[in-house]
Design a protein around this nucleic acid. Structure first.
Ligand SMILES: NC(=O)c1ccc[n+]([C@@H]2O[C@H](COP(=O)([O-])OP(=O)(O)OC[C@H]3O[C@@H](n4cnc5c(N)ncnc54)[C@H](O)[C@@H]3O)[C@@H](O)[C@H]2O)c1
Ligand SMILES: NC(=O)c1ccc[n+]([C@@H]2O[C@H](COP(=O)([O-])OP(=O)(O)OC[C@H]3O[C@@H](n4cnc5c(N)ncnc54)[C@H](O)[C@@H]3O)[C@@H](O)[C@H]2O)c1
Lengths: 212, 212
DNA sequence: GATAAGTCGTGATTAAATTCACAATTATAT
DNA sequence: ATATAATTGTGAATTTAATCACGACTTATC
């Protein structure tokens, strides 16, 4: 593939830059400097310039970056014109929250369908997205590349195996289970309980400057 | 404070280790090696040993780690006996999902209250947690150290200022707004749209081999 | 058109995190 | 007892990421 020399840390920041550039564009701004961007997204300006430089010379010295050009560039780089189909597995508290949310706003992803084991949920649709029974997973999921996993941890591994078997490419795993997948599948874990506990740990053990 | 020489990357993994040790303990396991732990939490075993070593020699060569001892050690280290009070700001899709979820399970945190601007939500309670009007923030929030911010991005900055003024210590920010706080407050951003988009980017640009 | 101010792109440096690899120690099998 | 296998803790090496700092170029001003 084209640019796999881009550091992972950089890749993770790209969507952030993209969203902010979109905002600027809507505000009618024509140019932006790494310093302004830095203040807005809270990333050091040298890091931003370095990040951009992996894609070539996108700016002009003494001027900054042209918002429209940069936005267009990132749109291509982030494949914003290509749609990625997503499915939600488990329409409980979290799954339902995602179904109600419009990820499409600045985004090249679309939630196409959801699955659940609870017969009361199956057959309904939430925010225009149909909910199928999990037994129909193999039958319905064609074309979906990414699964958002919001089922109880106890069934995460079993469902993951089925997702792998139907050829899913990526899983965004919100369960506490650390699922095992072959190398052909990419998993990102978002572990909300861990995030909360880590924040608490930092509060208690990493003294911050006190001045209000 | 006591151990602020611990690398941040290590600190972020501690809750993960703690949760898994809890599982092992409930299963009645008496010992565990860094290799087993590694397979379960998907962190390199050398990294685990290194992480643990920041706290001293917790294991025994040729044996591994005693589950109960390690668990007790982490309980203390992660202040599991001290309760941290949490408030949810904004009881929409996400905020409600969190209210229904029991963060307490393995955790030293408790959601004490929630706030919203919508009069239809105010006065109710969800999962035993009362919802107050956001106007009552200053009056009710005493004792709460951490706020989970799940309001629309447009009001995030204003509410953050009020949280800072009432002396909050930490904010878990789920809005796309990159909020500004004084150095006395710690903010962790969890940006779900960015996470999803980053996963998609990785899928398209990184030939699959390594998992995060 | 000369001067000052602003800003990028990047080589060099520093910092942080991960991983290798092995001596030291413990447990287990015979 | 002894040999073998397992496993830690850590110095050293490596990898990855962040930051410094400055030459080169652009724009604005007078
Ligand atoms: N809600 C939160 O705030 C929160 C926070 C941290 C972690 N999590 C994790 O996220 C996951 C989802 O949490 P939740 O609160 O939405 O749980 P939930 O119980 O509300 O939802 C789980 C859903 O999965 C469905 N389900 C059960 N078995 C299934 C199967 N075999 N196939 C398909 N669907 C099945 C259930 O019917 C239910 O609708 C859990 O693993 C939880 O630990 C949630
Ligand atoms: N739901 C998701 O899947 C999702 C995904 C990514 C990001 N987010 C972000 O998380 C945040 C919350 O998302 P959501 O889907 O829960 O939104 P939501 O609109 O469902 O909920 C927002 C809640 O905040 C309340 N609110 C509005 N103004 C307020 C104020 N001034 N003070 C207190 N409460 C106020 C509203 O009444 C509402 O209940 C948003 O910033 C959104 O961008 C959500």
């Amino acid at each position: 593939m084209d640019q796999n020399k881009i550091p992972q840390a950089t890749a993770k920041r790209l969507p952030l830059y993209y969203r902010f550039l979109n905002n600027l564009h809507h505000q009618g701004k024509l140019r932006v400097s790494s310093k302004e961007l830095s203040e807005a997204v809270k990333v050091d300006s040298a890091t931003i310039r370095r990040d951009f430089s992996y894609f070539g010379a996108l700016g002009k010295k003494g001027y900054g970056y042209n918002v429209e050009y940069l936005l267009g560039f990132f749109r291509k780089t982030l494949d914003q014109d290509e749609l990625t189909e997503v499915a939600i597995i488990g329409t409980g508290n979290l799954g339902t929250a995602f179904l109600h949310y419009n990820f499409m706003k600045n985004n090249n992803t679309k939630i196409m369908m959801a699955f659940d084991a609870n017969p009361e949920k199956v057959g309904k649709d939430i925010g225009g997205v149909p909910i199928y029974h999990i037994d129909e997973l193999e039958e319905k999921i064609n074309g979906v590349q990414v699964a958002i996993l919001t089922v109880p941890a106890s069934v995460a591994e079993g469902i993951t195996n089925r997702l792998v078997d139907v050829g899913i490419s990526g899983i965004l795993n919100f369960t506490p289970a650390r699922i095992t997948v072959p190398d052909s599948v990419r998993v990102h874990h978002i572990d909300l309980a861990v995030e909360l506990q880590a924040l608490v740990y930092f509060l208690k053990h990493y003294p911050l400057n006190t001045e209000e």
